[in-house]
Amino acid sequence: MHSLLDVILTTDFAFSVLRVMTPILFAALGALISNRAGIINIGLEGIMLVSALTGVVVSAYTHSAWVGLLAAAMGGTLIAGILAFFTLQFKTHIILGGIAINLFASGGTVFILYLLSGDKGSSTSLPSKVLPSIDIPLIKDIPVLGPILSGHHVLTYAAILAVFVVYYLLNKTPLGLRIRSVGENPHAAQSVGVSVMKTQYIALLLSGFFAGLGGAYMSMGYLSMFSRDMTAGRGWIALAAEAMGRGTTLGTSLTSLLFGAADALSNALQVLKIPAELIGTVPYIATLVGLVVYAINETRRKNNKKLKSKSQPSAK
């Protein structure tokens, strides 16, 4: 008889949380950067998918996993660039643009996969490469922590590193300041000489870059091949993580970890015969509740402010 705690309180489970979190974290960091610049990129799901395929195809033809990774990141940036071009130059609505990217990716990747491999389901016939996992010398010998933290895929470590990079970028660099000011109030930013368009371009390209790394992890780490629609909603979860993390780097990262745990849990709980379909909805329900609580608080705060500003003149 298994119990819930038996499943969760194992090093294997903690290890799998980090493993499952990786693509969500990458995409959520991408969502964070573009949202802070005031432009919501709902094409993350599609960008990840395109990058996952790009990584597999390029690594298969160049026989190098690292070239594949580079191509995947570039592919993600390129798709984000197309989205940026249309939304910023042609004034396509950003949400509709994102929908277009997602539609394009889910069909377009299958189209290209079929042309290259003659298979519409997966890329098993392409000899693609996988990025390595790394044992960390000292940590791997520590009991309990060792098996959790060591031996992960190289991109899992990169994702954790990226948290610090993004935090530094947003909070300590001139570019970060510009991104935040454009997101906060584009007119004010413009009036002090910040180019809104250029800043939003950069933010969208960066979001595509990070989502691209997440996509590369899906097909060159999490699995060792591309299969159709393999991102399976992780781009949406990432948007949710960003929304629930309230636009902070720390909040976004912790929520990604939480969603990773919920995802890993849904895998683990299949042992306990709790339907996976229902467990799979847990991250979304959590996000919904988090969003509503946040929205209610915001509305209250605004109403209080209004009341105060109304009562002030009479006090004078």
Partner: peptide, 14 residues
């Protein structure tokens, strides 16, 4: 393959 249509749809929306 019929998935070509996805590319066309994206072009139309954009």
């Amino acid at each position: 393959p019929s998935e070509m249509i996805a590319i066309i749809q994206a072009v139309i929306i954009l």
